[in-house]
Protein backbone atom coordinates (compact mmCIF):
# COMPACT_ATOMS: atom_id res chain seq x y z
CA UNK A 1 0.00 0.00 0.00
CA UNK A 2 1.46 3.31 -1.01
CA UNK A 3 1.93 6.03 1.53
CA UNK A 4 -0.27 8.95 0.77
CA UNK A 5 -0.63 12.20 2.58
CA UNK A 6 -3.87 12.64 4.48
CA UNK A 7 -5.02 15.34 2.08
CA UNK A 8 -4.56 13.39 -1.13
CA UNK A 9 -5.87 10.30 0.61
CA UNK A 10 -9.08 12.10 1.55
CA UNK A 11 -9.42 13.42 -1.98
CA UNK A 12 -9.23 9.88 -3.32
CA UNK A 13 -11.35 8.13 -0.72
CA UNK A 14 -14.44 10.31 -0.85
CA UNK A 15 -15.17 9.55 -4.52
CA UNK A 16 -14.57 5.85 -3.91
CA UNK A 17 -17.11 5.74 -1.11
CA UNK A 18 -19.59 7.76 -3.16
CA UNK A 19 -19.18 5.33 -6.05
CA UNK A 20 -19.67 2.39 -3.67
CA UNK A 21 -22.88 4.09 -2.55
CA UNK A 22 -24.08 3.84 -6.14
CA UNK A 23 -23.38 0.12 -6.23
CA UNK A 24 -19.88 0.19 -7.74
CA UNK A 25 -18.25 -2.97 -6.43
CA UNK A 26 -14.84 -2.27 -7.91
CA UNK A 27 -14.76 1.07 -6.09
CA UNK A 28 -15.74 -0.70 -2.88
CA UNK A 29 -12.93 -3.23 -3.35
CA UNK A 30 -10.47 -0.40 -3.89
CA UNK A 31 -11.79 1.38 -0.81
CA UNK A 32 -11.28 -1.77 1.23
CA UNK A 33 -7.74 -2.20 -0.04
CA UNK A 34 -6.83 1.36 0.89
CA UNK A 35 -8.57 1.68 4.24
CA UNK A 36 -8.80 -1.77 5.86
CA UNK A 37 -5.32 -1.66 7.51
CA UNK A 38 -6.20 1.62 9.17
CA UNK A 39 -9.57 0.32 10.39
CA UNK A 40 -8.09 -2.96 11.57
CA UNK A 41 -5.50 -1.00 13.57
CA UNK A 42 -8.39 0.69 15.37
CA UNK A 43 -10.25 -2.59 15.96
CA UNK A 44 -7.15 -4.38 17.26
CA UNK A 45 -6.45 -1.53 19.66
CA UNK A 46 -10.00 -1.61 21.02
CA UNK A 47 -10.62 -5.36 21.16
CA UNK A 48 -7.04 -6.47 21.94
CA UNK A 49 -7.72 -9.67 20.01
CA UNK A 50 -6.66 -10.06 16.41
CA UNK A 51 -9.25 -12.68 15.45
CA UNK A 52 -12.13 -10.79 16.99
CA UNK A 53 -10.87 -7.57 15.46
CA UNK A 54 -10.99 -9.16 12.01
CA UNK A 55 -14.55 -10.35 12.62
CA UNK A 56 -15.54 -6.82 13.53
CA UNK A 57 -13.66 -5.50 10.50
CA UNK A 58 -15.70 -7.82 8.31
CA UNK A 59 -18.95 -6.66 9.91
CA UNK A 60 -17.84 -3.08 9.48
CA UNK A 61 -17.23 -3.35 5.72
CA UNK A 62 -20.51 -5.18 5.18
CA UNK A 63 -22.16 -2.23 6.93
CA UNK A 64 -20.08 0.21 4.84
CA UNK A 65 -21.58 -1.26 1.68
CA UNK A 66 -25.08 -1.28 3.14
CA UNK A 67 -24.94 2.25 4.53
CA UNK A 68 -22.72 3.94 1.97
CA UNK A 69 -25.74 5.92 0.78
CA UNK A 70 -25.85 7.71 4.12
CA UNK A 71 -22.31 9.05 3.67
CA UNK A 72 -22.36 12.82 3.32
CA UNK A 73 -18.97 14.24 2.29
CA UNK A 74 -20.08 17.68 3.48
CA UNK A 75 -20.24 16.37 7.03
CA UNK A 76 -17.14 14.23 7.33
CA UNK A 77 -14.40 12.75 5.19
CA UNK A 78 -14.72 9.15 4.05
CA UNK A 79 -11.92 8.12 6.40
CA UNK A 80 -13.64 9.74 9.40
CA UNK A 81 -16.92 8.07 8.42
CA UNK A 82 -15.25 4.68 8.02
CA UNK A 83 -13.34 4.84 11.28
CA UNK A 84 -16.41 6.00 13.17
CA UNK A 85 -18.37 3.08 11.74
CA UNK A 86 -15.64 0.56 12.62
CA UNK A 87 -15.39 1.98 16.15
CA UNK A 88 -19.15 1.69 16.57
CA UNK A 89 -18.99 -1.96 15.53
CA UNK A 90 -16.13 -2.56 17.97
CA UNK A 91 -17.97 -0.82 20.81
CA UNK A 92 -21.13 -2.81 20.08
CA UNK A 93 -19.05 -5.97 20.25
CA UNK A 94 -17.55 -4.91 23.57
CA UNK A 95 -21.02 -4.23 24.98
CA UNK A 96 -22.33 -7.59 23.76
CA UNK A 97 -20.10 -10.04 25.45
CA UNK A 98 -17.56 -8.65 27.76
CA UNK A 99 -17.99 -8.21 31.46
CA UNK A 100 -16.86 -4.66 31.73
CA UNK A 101 -15.35 -4.72 35.17
CA UNK A 102 -12.65 -6.95 36.45
CA UNK A 103 -11.15 -7.85 33.10
CA UNK A 104 -8.65 -5.11 33.39
CA UNK A 105 -6.33 -4.74 36.31
CA UNK A 106 -4.64 -1.75 34.79
CA UNK A 107 -5.04 1.52 36.56
CA UNK A 108 -5.55 4.72 34.71
CA UNK A 109 -2.11 6.10 35.55
CA UNK A 110 -0.35 3.12 34.03
CA UNK A 111 -2.01 3.46 30.64
CA UNK A 112 0.50 4.55 28.05
CA UNK A 113 -0.14 7.78 26.24
CA UNK A 114 0.72 8.18 22.62
CA UNK A 115 4.39 8.94 23.28
CA UNK A 116 5.07 5.37 24.27
CA UNK A 117 3.33 3.93 21.20
CA UNK A 118 5.76 3.43 18.36
CA UNK A 119 5.21 6.09 15.73
CA UNK A 120 4.54 3.78 12.84
CA UNK A 121 2.44 6.34 11.07
CA UNK A 122 4.86 9.12 10.38
CA UNK A 123 2.36 11.40 8.79
CA UNK A 124 -0.20 13.03 10.95
CA UNK A 125 -2.76 15.33 9.52
CA UNK A 126 -3.52 18.91 10.35
CA UNK A 127 -6.69 17.81 12.15
CA UNK A 128 -4.65 15.58 14.41
CA UNK A 129 -2.24 18.39 15.27
CA UNK A 130 -5.10 20.72 16.13
CA UNK A 131 -6.76 18.11 18.29
CA UNK A 132 -3.49 17.39 20.09
CA UNK A 133 -2.96 21.09 20.76
CA UNK A 134 -6.41 21.27 22.32
CA UNK A 135 -5.86 18.04 24.27
CA UNK A 136 -2.70 19.57 25.68
CA UNK A 137 -4.75 22.33 27.23
CA UNK A 138 -6.83 19.90 29.28
CA UNK A 139 -5.89 18.85 32.77
CA UNK A 140 -3.85 15.63 32.70
CA UNK A 141 -6.67 13.66 34.33
CA UNK A 142 -9.23 14.86 31.79
CA UNK A 143 -6.86 14.16 28.93
CA UNK A 144 -6.04 10.69 30.25
CA UNK A 145 -9.70 9.75 30.74
CA UNK A 146 -10.79 10.94 27.32
CA UNK A 147 -7.96 9.16 25.59
CA UNK A 148 -8.57 6.00 27.59
CA UNK A 149 -12.31 6.12 26.95
CA UNK A 150 -11.74 6.61 23.24
CA UNK A 151 -9.35 3.71 22.80
CA UNK A 152 -10.88 1.25 25.26
CA UNK A 153 -14.54 1.74 24.38
CA UNK A 154 -15.36 1.19 28.05
CA UNK A 155 -18.49 2.59 29.68
CA UNK A 156 -18.43 5.34 32.31
CA UNK A 157 -18.98 2.69 34.97
CA UNK A 158 -16.10 0.53 33.84
CA UNK A 159 -13.80 3.50 33.46
CA UNK A 160 -14.63 4.73 36.96
CA UNK A 161 -13.90 1.32 38.40
CA UNK A 162 -10.68 1.11 36.49
CA UNK A 163 -9.56 4.56 37.56
CA UNK A 164 -10.79 3.91 41.10
CA UNK A 165 -12.69 7.17 41.31
CA UNK A 166 -16.38 7.77 41.99
CA UNK A 167 -18.58 7.58 38.89
CA UNK A 168 -19.69 11.21 39.26
CA UNK A 169 -16.12 12.42 39.41
CA UNK A 170 -15.15 10.54 36.28
CA UNK A 171 -18.20 11.75 34.39
CA UNK A 172 -17.48 15.35 35.23
CA UNK A 173 -13.83 15.03 34.19
CA UNK A 174 -14.82 13.65 30.83
CA UNK A 175 -17.77 15.95 30.22
CA UNK A 176 -15.87 19.08 31.09
CA UNK A 177 -12.99 17.86 29.00
CA UNK A 178 -15.26 17.30 25.99
CA UNK A 179 -16.83 20.75 26.27
CA UNK A 180 -13.38 22.36 26.57
CA UNK A 181 -12.22 20.42 23.54
CA UNK A 182 -15.19 21.60 21.55
CA UNK A 183 -14.59 25.20 22.54
CA UNK A 184 -10.90 24.94 21.70
CA UNK A 185 -11.49 23.30 18.32
CA UNK A 186 -14.08 25.90 17.36
CA UNK A 187 -11.75 28.84 17.85
Amino acid sequence: MSVTSPVSQAAELDPLLLRAAMGDRAAFADLYRRTAPRLLGVCVRMLADRREAEEVLQEAYVAVWQRAKTFDPARASAMTWLIALARNKAIDRLRQHRSVAGDFATELESIPDEDSIPAVRVERGEEYRRLEQCMEQLQPKQRGCIREAFFSGLTYNALAERAQVPLGTLKSWIRRGLLQLRACLET
Binding site: Y32, R38, G41, D72, V120
Partner: peptide, 30 residues
Protein backbone atom coordinates in the same frame (compact mmCIF):
# COMPACT_ATOMS: atom_id res chain seq x y z
CA UNK B 1 -20.85 13.69 12.56
CA UNK B 2 -19.32 16.87 13.97
CA UNK B 3 -18.08 15.04 17.05
CA UNK B 4 -16.70 12.29 14.86
CA UNK B 5 -14.72 14.88 12.95
CA UNK B 6 -13.42 16.29 16.19
CA UNK B 7 -12.38 13.02 17.82
CA UNK B 8 -11.51 10.54 15.04
CA UNK B 9 -8.11 12.16 14.37
CA UNK B 10 -7.02 10.52 17.65
CA UNK B 11 -6.77 7.26 15.71
CA UNK B 12 -3.99 8.70 13.57
CA UNK B 13 -1.47 7.65 16.17
CA UNK B 14 -2.40 3.99 15.90
CA UNK B 15 -0.29 1.64 13.79
CA UNK B 16 -1.97 0.12 10.76
CA UNK B 17 -2.56 -3.63 10.79
CA UNK B 18 -2.86 -5.51 7.50
CA UNK B 19 -5.91 -7.82 7.50
CA UNK B 20 -5.45 -11.51 6.69
CA UNK B 21 -6.20 -12.56 3.15
CA UNK B 22 -9.41 -14.32 4.24
CA UNK B 23 -11.26 -11.20 5.36
CA UNK B 24 -12.13 -9.79 1.95
CA UNK B 25 -13.56 -13.07 0.58
CA UNK B 26 -15.70 -13.33 3.72
CA UNK B 27 -17.00 -9.80 3.18
CA UNK B 28 -17.90 -10.69 -0.42
CA UNK B 29 -19.60 -13.83 0.80
CA UNK B 30 -21.54 -11.96 3.47
Amino acid sequence: ALWQRRLMPLTELLPEVAPSAGVWPRIRQA
